[in-house]
């Protein structure tokens, strides 16, 4: 069996760099800072690019929220009105503020997309553990990631079985009651399963501590990424002071 090629960057450096850049982007208040954060986001895409399709789809979804801000904030901020709706002024300053929030939000999305999204849940958990997250939280994360797909399949099985017996999803008391029964079964099976999983873990020597299979190893590229992200985060914050 040919081993999978080792990832170029360690999850810890990706996550630490993303946190530094995301925090700096989140707390900046000016267009120079937000512009630099957007540039950082675009640069970060080089570390996690998998084509424009998925990114544009996700950006469109996330920006629906920001459309709400662009539609409401200009009415709440006093300033030079661009137009009036039912006597309410839609201010230029408010629109600029909402656009700034949108730019910051998109910058953080791009940073996350490039640096963190390429990690699998297992690599993500190992990185969090390596950065000092408590063992118990890492274990809950590992179990959630491990059993998520199984629970989704279980739900699909329950729903398919109900449909084969004539269940017609709709807005009715009977349909909601059936959904509730299926969800109750999902949770009961999850709790029953948890007991068996714990027994199986004990049989394999589980002593309550979370052990990862190891990270990919810290390289010079990881140090360079961390230093680069720190410098860029400081630059974003420095533009605030100008």
């Amino acid at each position: 069996m040919v081993p999978a090629p080792a990832p170029v960057l360690d999850g810890r450096s990706r996550l630490a760099g993303a946190v530094a850049l995301c925090v700096a982007s989140a707390v900046c208040h000016s267009w120079p800072g937000a512009g630099l954060a957007l540039a950082c986001g675009l640069a970060a895409l080089a570390l996690g690019w998998d084509g424009p399709g998925p990114l544009l789809k996700r950006m469109a979804f996330v920006n629906v929220f920001f459309l709400g801000l662009l539609a409401t904030v200009p009415f709440a901020v006093p300033g030079a009105p661009l137009f009036h709706i039912s006597g309410w002024p839609f201010s230029r300053e408010g629109l600029a503020l909402a656009a700034l929030m949108t730019a910051k939000g998109n910058a953080i999305l791009l940073i996350f997309w490039g640096l963190v999204r390429p990690l699998s849940p297992a690599e993500f958990g190992a990185a969090l553990s390596g950065l000092g997250m408590p063992d118990k939280l890492c274990l809950i994360l590992a179990l959630t990631a491990r059993y998520l797909e199984l629970m989704r399949r279980e739900w699909d099985r329950l729903l398919t079985a109900a449909r084969l017996r004539g269940f017609d999803p709709g807005t009715s008391r009977r349909a909601w009651s059936t959904y509730a029964l299926l969800l109750a079964l999902l949770f009961i099976r999850a709790m029953d399963r948890a007991g068996a999983i714990h027994q199986a873990m004990l049989c394999r020597g589980f002593d309550g501590r979370f052990r990862t299979l190891g990270t990919s190893g810290w390289r010079a590229a990881d140090t360079a990424l961390c230093l680069g992200c720190t410098v860029l985060a400081c630059a974003v914050l420095f533009t605030e002071a100008l």
Binding site: P134, K136, L137, L139, I140, L141, A142, L143, T144, A145, R146, Y147, L148, L150, M151, R152, E154, W155, P169, G170, T171, A175, W176, Y179, L183, L186, F187, A190, M191, R193, A194, G195, I197, H198, M201, G208
Partner: peptide, 28 residues
Amino acid sequence: IRKLEGEALVRTGVLSAAFFAASLVHLP
């Protein structure tokens, strides 16, 4: 997490997965 040990810890993780799956259900 202070008092989470043994089976309660495992149950939290598995139930978290079940709730995650349930949150993807769309109720008509």
